[in-house]
């Protein structure tokens, strides 16, 4: 396992890094030299081999370290994982989806053996082996959603579909861009999106909800979201804001390349079969500015996106204070030449 997964931390000494291979496959979220909100959903179909889209759930070199970090967050604050009582069935749906996908896509790391409802799960990277009865919570050490999301990169919210709306009634949220499951749990689609600027006026959430209520079994969709994070912290939560918020004031021109990270969320939306709920995995990818600019196209494009972004969005995403310093850094990598279409490196 040692060769497959990085030994690294997302706190204290922050030894997180991306290998050259991880940089090349980073999901850079800007397909053109500008950015504005849109309902940018596309089918979540398998993408190019080796890309983060190759499989339903991407497992990369950060897997083991990310799972260790999640366990630390949960030990300090168990409310980062909550499931209202009616969401247990959706939890089983999610467990089945993840186990089936990983055993199919990464057979050298994961195995799932089924005999009726007697299941046997093997997770080699985390050295876990579990025999349990599908549908019987008492045979697992945690509820089904918590059990499987302690072994899966990315945050997860499970949304109940009722009264022509979606309700955030369960989730495992430890790698979030400054929002709180404990605050949002039980809210409807428009309630939990209320703080987002500009998008409401454009009717984006009305259209997105209508689309999602019609999301079909077997036809998942995906979109990107992004922000900036100082130091490679997975857990930037409101609950711990006093610990990480002030670090944004400590950047210098000398440290920005190493400490400022583009934070990309690959969000997928998947209809679950038994519960008719919707799973919303939010997978966080981090990349240092110093790593990002090793791809010339991305350095040029990120400079243009940040330069032209409306002020409200910079404020909402929490980097308005550092925008001038970011632009000074990124301008060094923008020679003004055109960029090619699409997100991938040239």
């Amino acid at each position: 396992m040692g060769l497959d997964f990085n030994q690294e931390t997302f706190r204290n000494d922050f030894t997180f890094r991306n290998s050259p291979k991880a940089i090349r496959r980073f999901p850079f979220p800007f397909h053109e030299d500008g950015y504005m909100y849109s309902v940018n959903l596309e089918p979540h179909v398998p993408g190019p081999k080796g890309s983060v889209f190759e499989h339903t759930f991407d497992v990369d070199e950060h897997y083991v370290a990310e799972m260790r970090d999640r366990a630390l967050v949960l030990a300090e604050d168990p409310l980062r994982c909550q499931s209202l009582p009616h969401m247990t069935l959706a939890g089983w749906d999610l467990l089945e989806l993840i186990m089936t996908s990983k055993a199919r896509d990464y057979p050298h790391w994961f195995e799932l053996h089924k005999q009726g409802d007697k299941w046997h799960w093997i997770n080699k990277p985390l050295e876990i082996e579990q025999k349990f009865t599908f549908g019987d919570e008492t045979t697992l050490p945690y509820g089904p959603m918590e059990y499987i999301t302690r072994q899966t990169q990315g945050d997860f919210s499970l949304q109940d579909h009722r009264d022509d709306n979606l309700w955030m009634d369960a989730g495992m949220i430890t790698t979030q861009a400054d929002w709180s499951l404990d605050f949002d749990v039980g809210m409807s689609f428009h309630e939990w999106h209320a703080p987002v600027p500009l998008a409401h006026e454009k009717g984006i959430f009305d259209r997105a909800l209508k689309f999602l209520l019609n999301l079909q079994l077997g036809a998942p969709v995906r979109r990107f979201n992004w922000t900036m994070t100082v130091d490679p912290l997975l857990d930037t939560s409101p609950e711990t804001y006093p610990q990480w918020g002030p670090t944004r004031a400590s950047l210098t021109p000398e440290t920005i390349g190493k400490r400022m990270h583009l934070r990309v969320e690959l969000q997928t939306l998947i209809r679950l079969p038994r519960s008719n709920a919707i799973a919303f995995p939010i997978r966080c990818y981090l990349i240092k500015f110093d790593e990002l600019v090793t791809v010339p196209k991305w350095g040029r494009r990120l400079h243009r996106v940040i330069r032209d972004l409306p002020e409200e969005l910079a404020v909402y995403k929490g980097f308005a204070r550092n925008r001038p310093m970011m632009l000074d850094y990124l301008a060094q990598y923008d020679d003004g030449t055109p960029t090619s279409p699409g997100i991938w490196p040239d």
Binding site: H86, R162, S275, N276
Partner: peptide
Amino acid sequence: SAPVNLFGLDLQ
């Protein structure tokens, strides 16, 4: 078609 549910149980 794949199954579609317009008559789901309210599990609450």
